[in-house]
């Protein structure tokens, strides 16, 4: 008899209690996102895909000095310098292997020309290995462009590493 009462109690008391929790959450704001229809805005310190910056006149900032490659703990960066038409130094080949990259941001720290930045994007899925080998053309920011989304990141990097604002 005792067991019967216990079972009935579960059905009529405990179960509604549990369902009440579910019911409460039905009217709460959900913690998940409707990905991929909706995307989560990343924190300013998030380190996503790499960008190569340009000067205002459109010329590349990167001079292929090799410090990012030297700083890279995963050895993901490969570069070859060349002489540009005005005698300037620039990258002939600049490749980042995203499969090797651990997104530590050391390249960003090491860069003396403020040329490489880790942006906010995090979607790199692809079905071919070769497509993870990002070249200079993939990473260079478009020119001309309307706004500069890196201003905030540049300011943050400068602040972290004690560079005075120019």
């Amino acid at each position: 008899m005792k067991e019967v009462i216990k079972a009935v109690g579960h059905v009529f008391i405990k179960m509604p209690q549990g369902l009440l929790v579910t019911l409460k959450h039905l009217f709460k704001k959900p913690v998940t996102l409707d990905y991929p229809r909706k995307k989560k805005p990343m924190m300013p310190r998030y380190r996503g895909r790499h960008y190569l910056e340009r000067y205002d006149d459109g010329s590349e900032r990167c001079v292929c000095c090799g410090l990012c490659a030297a700083a890279c703990p995963a050895d993901a960066i490969y570069m070859e310098p060349e002489e540009g038409e005005h005698g300037e130094r620039r990258a002939k080949v600049y490749e980042i292997n995203l499969l090797r990259c651990i997104f530590c941001g050391f390249c960003e720290e090491a860069c003396p020309e403020e040329a490489i930045f880790l942006g906010q994007e995090y979607e790199f899925a692809a079905d071919k290995r070769n497509s993870f080998l990002w070249t200079k053309e993939d990473m260079l920011v478009p020119h001309p462009r309307k706004d500069n989304p890196f201003k905030k990141i540049i300011r943050r990097v400068r602040k972290v590493y004690g560079v005075t604002e120019q």
Binding site: C64, G66, A69, E83, R89
Partner: peptide, 9 residues
């Protein structure tokens, strides 16, 4: 040697 490679590499 101009712009060929970095000496440490």
């Amino acid at each position: 040697w101009r712009y060929k490679m970095r000496v440490w590499l």
